[in-house]
């Protein structure tokens, strides 16, 4: 076992994939700076800086994937997907279905997601529910360095378009550039877990669509992905002090969604609390509520998610994003019902 930060794990797994498969090419904005090491090692033909033309380079990735490459696109922030939605929603997502399953689009879009560092509502969205809404797209959200590397390798190996979303609070590179900018005068509420951890000597792909049980409990199931997992784990510690035993399920992948893992746990706890850094309405929280209803399990349900545009003001931002206190309070209320 080696020890790596979240960002190192991503770069290390990407390096392995590029070494093993010449078809893996990286492009996007500022990749010569963002991926300076890969740029140096593999040269500009395989690590290529792009103009600020998301429609063009995401659309190019679709065509390149169809014609035999395995593009790995650096979109920097998932918010920028909106600029190039057609390439993904109407092109990448449709090719496999339209071709009767004969033609696939093996591409990865990597982007930072989420807030917590005061960058405003146009740079801190999570948007995985939006992606997961579209048939033909996959989206993963790792919460540990080991998962980040394993899911990244799986995303590259997958034959479908996969979004690889990276919670910025767990990274050192994105958070340094977008948040502190070299300052020592700012700090954030960074979860204690997830920023670094043990990773395998050699990366193996992790199956997409498999949740991980991070903590076993008997009274309440807390499910989520990314930062929410670390917040939920902290809340579960607090809850155990009150005699409430919470399990924490790390979904890891929003699409495909491991409904079975959640339902299996809810079957024993009878309570589900979904924590989501994405918007509340028409998203992950509602999807899991539907899964419980459809299963016929007699479970109580509550959710915590982002209910409006994320405020720039860091104080209000903290209240809008799911935090330990909100999870703790919601879990207690769910126990009382």
């Amino acid at each position: 076992m080696r020890e790596m930060t979240f960002s190192q794990a991503i770069e290390d797994a990407l390096t392995q994939a590029m070494k093993e498969d010449q078809r893996v090419v990286v492009f996007g904005e500022d990749v010569h700076a963002l991926r300076m090491n890969l740029y140096t090692r593999f040269g500009e033909k395989r690590v290529r800086p792009a103009p600020i033309s998301e429609s063009a380079f995401l659309g190019t990735a679709v065509g390149a994937a169809m014609a035999g490459l395995r593009p790995f696109v650096e979109l920097i922030l998932i918010d920028f997907l909106a600029v190039a939605a057609d390439a993904i929603i109407n092109q990448a997502a449709k090719v496999e279905a339209f071709s009767g399953g004969r033609w696939k689009v093996p591409m990865v879009v990597r982007a930072g997601c989420g807030g917590g560092y005061g960058d405003g509502g146009q740079h801190e969205q999570s948007l995985w529910g939006w992606i997961a809404h579209i048939p033909g797209l996959k989206v993963v959200v790792p919460s540990t360095p080991a998962d980040a590397g394993g899911l990244l390798l799986a995303a590259i190996a997958d034959e479908s378009p996969v979004f690889f979303l990276e919670p910025k609070l767990l990274t050192d590179d994105l958070l340094e550039v977008l948040g502190s900018g070299g300052r020592t005068t700012v700090t954030y509420d960074i979860p204690t877990g997830g920023r670094s951890g043990p990773v395998p000597e050699r990366w193996e792909p992790l199956a997409l669509g498999r949740a991980a049980v991070r903590r076993e409990g008997t009274d309440i199931t807390i499910a989520g992905a990314g930062i929410a997992i670390h917040r939920a784990t902290e809340a579960a510690d607090l809850l155990s002090g009150e005699g409430i035993s919470a399990s924490v399920i790390d979904l890891r992948s929003i699409a495909p969604l491991d409904r079975d893992a959640v339902l299996k746990d809810v079957e024993s706890t009878g309570r589900l609390l979904v924590v989501d850094d994405d918007y509340r309405d028409f998203g992950l929280t509602g999807e899991l509520a539907a899964a419980v209803l459809e299963s016929g399990l007699p479970a109580r349900f509550a959710r915590i998610a982002v209910e409006g545009t994320i405020p720039f003001d860091p104080k209000r931002e903290q209240k809008v994003l799911p935090n330990v206190e909100r999870i703790y309070e919601a879990a207690r209320r769910l126990m009382e019902r």
Binding site: M18, T40, R41, G43, E44, K45
Partner: peptide
């Protein structure tokens, strides 16, 4: 280490990148 590691582009391409 990226510039020196085995596996990757030719030396000329790596120099061009640096």
């Amino acid at each position: 280490s990226a510039a020196m590691s085995s596996g990757g582009a030719s030396i000329a391409q790596r120099l061009a990148a640096i």
